[in-house]
Design a binder for these strands. Structure first.
Lengths: 266, 266
DNA sequence: TAGTGGTCTAGACCACTCG
DNA sequence: GAGTGGTCTAGACCACTAA
């Protein structure tokens, strides 16, 4: 296998020979029409019935193609309404160590924020461990949806030890900025302590806010921030549509690995 | 997270036999049987026809459930043979900056390697840029499948500037170790310069070697290694089944971010 | 109320694998 | 040749949305 094949973005496409199967033809046709902006972002596709006529197949065959495109995040269906082009998937580069907003705006894109919920809860095992506080410590839980160029692109949920930020609500209500909350409480500087990348599949809620199909694959990021004295101040959990993001991690350290006899480096 | 968490909207009715929808019931049933090891890893499921009888539905309904489980990497179908449980998905932690093998063996797992191909090619634009060599420079392309506990888990393709490793084949043939090739050519130490995490969907080839369904979501990692003098010696491209891996990136730098008025930190 | 997508049925033919 | 999964047909009923 060549590297080209590893990098090939086309998933379902097999040999470029003649029509392998009707649904694959429909898949490829619609996909290229979306990518060529022939079906522009946000536009509504012809109804399934109309697509049946166009391609001379039954609904189940059309739906097979639509389902694959939904899984990839290119289409989103709304029951009783229609099927819509979700986005010509751009891929935003997120460089670890930079602020979210700097990553995006540096490329000329605009960032928006919707605060979905703010609540107080008792920390569960995992966030408690990450924040180095006892379980059931009171935490502020804030869920926000980040929009890039007005497209819902990143769903984020932060947990902050409540004791550290007694005036969270007032400050956040005024500025909608967690950074401002930090500053207000005397934290002028902080750093990312660790980032973890995993993945999964969209729950109903995630799918709804991100405009994805339920069960669509997601990239999940989890990180911990600490202030300059090493206090853990934030546990953050977020998810992206699979195709929407590329994480860039610069050189993790200046340590060199010594090659080992008989070892294998990956 | 998975489709398992889908809640039926009209679940207010108390009759215990309330079926949300047949395919979702089948999905959940099979999924729990796999996770509970009732259907052990590697075992063959009853044929679709048998599942139809068991659940009293038609094949299309059974297949709807099987398709979702294939997409998640829990099942893999082999035409003309049957449907098999792929794995009770473990999640391997890969910490950036460590060697591949150290990451895995530290947790007590075993690592194996299958060399799939070795060839010489001319560098395409992207690897050439990453390696800081002109396009069409001769590179050694080596594709390997890494097995963890005898399960194909990581597909990796490295590109090395051919001029730097004139005796690649002889050394690699002897030891099957890229590290040994480095040492043989006087490179005793090297470091990861950058790592990028993206994702995508399995091509036919990737699906075949990883035992996944075509189009199943993948995590892709791309990295560049350099020697102690800063020469780029390796461009590496790999992919994992979505649920098989968690990437851990420790504190990227000691630089602190100053909170910015009106800024938002993500 | 008309149109949409979500689901399901009961068949069918095919390519593939294996004994 | 028997059994398997992959695909497709031509219907059907439902829940949902919008005019």
């Amino acid at each position: 296998m060549s590297l080209d094949e590893i990098q090939k973005p086309d998933a379902h496409v097999s040999n470029g020979a003649a029509d392998p199967s009707p649904w694959l033809t429909i898949y490829r046709t619609l996909r290229s029409e979306i990518l060529s902006d022939n079906l522009p972002s946000g536009s509504r596709l012809p109804s399934e019935k109309q697509l049946c006529d166009r391609f001379s197949v039954t609904r189940m065959t059309v739906r097979r193609a639509l389902q694959a495109l939904q899984q990839e995040g290119m289409l989103i269906a709304r029951k009783g309404v229609g099927v819509f082009v979700r986005r010509t998937p751009p891929c935003y580069q997120i460089t670890d160590g930079n602020r979210f907003i700097d990553n995006i705006t540096a490329a000329g894109d605009t960032v928006g924020t919707q605060t979905l919920s703010i609540s107080r809860e008792r920390a569960l095992a995992e966030p408690a461990e990450a924040l180095k506080v006892p379980r059931s410590t009171r935490v502020i839980v804030i869920t926000r949806l980040r929009l890039i160029n007005n497209e819902p692109t990143f769903l984020n949920c932060k947990q902050l030890p409540a004791a550290l930020f007694p005036e969270f609500d007032a400050v956040y209500a005024r500025r909608q900025s967690v950074d401002d909350v930090y500053r207000h409480h005397g934290i002028d500087t902080h750093r990312r302590e660790e980032t973890r990348i995993t993945s999964g599949f969209a729950t109903e809620e995630e799918a709804a806010v991100l405009g994805l199909a339920v069960g669509a694959p997601l990239l999940r990021s989890r990180s911990v921030n600490e202030d300059e004295t090493g206090n853990r101040i934030e546990y953050s959990n977020g998810c992206w549509p699979l195709t929407a993001v590329e994480f860039v991690f610069p050189s993790p350290s200046e340590n060199y690995h010594h090659t080992k006899r008989g070892g294998v480096h990956g």
